[in-house]
Design a protein around this nucleic acid. Structure first.
Length: 261
DNA sequence: ATGCCGGGCGAAGCCCGA
C-alpha cells in the first residue's frame, strides 16, 4: 500500500500536476498540504473521478490539508487537539480498514516558524508540543499509524545542501530539532531515513535563485510511523521528477510502501 | 538573499511561504 505526502502549494494552481501524478503513480493514500482554499473550493469531482475518497480541512488563502484514499474512511477528524483557539487548518486525521487491519493516517502542515524572534516561532514550538501530546495518545491504540506531512524541520546536515545558510532558521535551529526528537522518541520511525541512509536527497527546492537546477534543496517532508506501521515498511522514495514539471510545487511527493496485506 | 519566485486576493501591490 503506497502512502504519500505532498505540499502542493495551492490545490487550485496545482490541480493539473496533482491529477497527472495521481494517475501516474497511483498512491493508495495521499496526504496533501497547503491547499490554500476553503472546503467548498476543493476540486472534489476531478479527484473523485480518479477513484479517491476525500477528507478536507480547508482554510481561505492559507494552510489547508487533505487526505485522499482509494479505500473509504471509517472516521475523520479535523484539527490538532490541544488548543481550541487555534484556527489554522494544519491537521486532518483519518482511520480506514485494509486487508491487513486498521490503519490511521494524519496529514500534517507544521508551522514554518520564521522569523524566529516573533510569535510565529513560539507558535511552531507550541504546535510541535501539541503534536507530540496527541501522538502519545494515538500510540496507545497500538495500531499502524502514519504521521505524514510537511514538518518544516530539517533533521540533520545530511538533509540540507548548505547547512551554514540555514543554521539560525526556524527549520534548523536546535530548539526545533529538540522538539522533533521528542516526538520521534515516543517510538516513531522516520520511514525515509530508515530506508535511505545516504544524504542529500531533498523534498523542497526554493523557486528562487536557481535552487532547483543547482540541487540546492532541503528534506522537510516526512512520514513518521508507529511500531506497528514500521513493521510493515517495505520502502520509501521521493518523486523528485514532479519538480521538473510545468508550474511545479516547490515541494515534491515523498512516499512509503507498507505491507498492509 | 530577512524573498531574487510563486500563489492568494483582487485588480496594484502587499502578505505569505522556507
Amino acid at each position: 500500500m503506497k502512502i504519500a505526502t505532498w505540499n502542493v502549494n495551492s490545490i487550485k494552481a496545482r490541480l493539473p500536476n496533482v491529477l497527472q501524478w495521481l494517475q501516474q503513480e497511483q498512491p493508495d493514500i495521499a496526504c496533501l498540504q497547503e491547499l490554500k482554499c476553503v472546503d467548498d473550493a476543493f476540486p472534489v469531482t476531478e479527484i473523485e473521478d480518479l477513484g479517491y475518497n476525500i477528507a478536507v480541512h480547508g482554510q481561505k488563502t492559507y494552510n489547508g490539508v487533505a487526505i485522499l484514499s482509494k479505500r473509504p474512511f471509517d472516521e475523520v477528524s479535523n484539527g490538532l487537539p490541544g488548543d481550541e483557539s487555534d484556527e489554522q487548518a494544519r491537521y486532518v486525521e483519518a482511520s480506514l480498514s485494509t486487508p491487513g487491519g486498521a490503519l490511521r493516517v494524519a496529514s500534517i502542515y507544521l508551522p514554518n516558524g520564521n522569523p524566529v524572534d516573533t510569535a510565529k516561532y513560539d507558535y511552531k514550538l507550541a504546535w510541535m508540543e501539541r503534536l507530540t501530546e496527541h501522538a502519545k495518545t494515538l500510540l496507545t491504540y497500538e495500531e499502524p499509524l502514519v504521521l505524514a506531512g510537511d514538518y518544516n524541520v530539517i533533521i540533520d546536515e545530511q538533509d540540507v545542501h548548505d547547512p551554514d545558510a540555514w543554521r539560525g532558521d526556524a527549520l534548523f535551529r536546535p530548539q526545533t530539532a529538540e522538539r522533533f526528537q521528542s516526538l520521534v522518541n515516543l517510538g516513531l520511525t522516520n520511514s525515509f531515513k530508515a530506508c535511505n541512509a545516504q544524504g542529500n536527497l531533498y523534498s523542497f527546492w526554493d523557486y528562487q535563485a536557481g535552487a532547483w537546477p543547482k540541487d540546492n534543496g532541503i528534506l522537510i517532508d516526512h512520514l513518521l510511523l508507529s511500531p506497528q506501521a514500521a513493521d510493515k515498511l517495505r520502502s520509501s522514495q521521493i518523486d523528485k521528477f514532479t519538480r521538473g514539471w510545468e508550474r511545479p510545487s516547490d515541494h515534491v511527493p515523498v512516499w512509503i510502501d507498507l505491507d498492509m496485506g
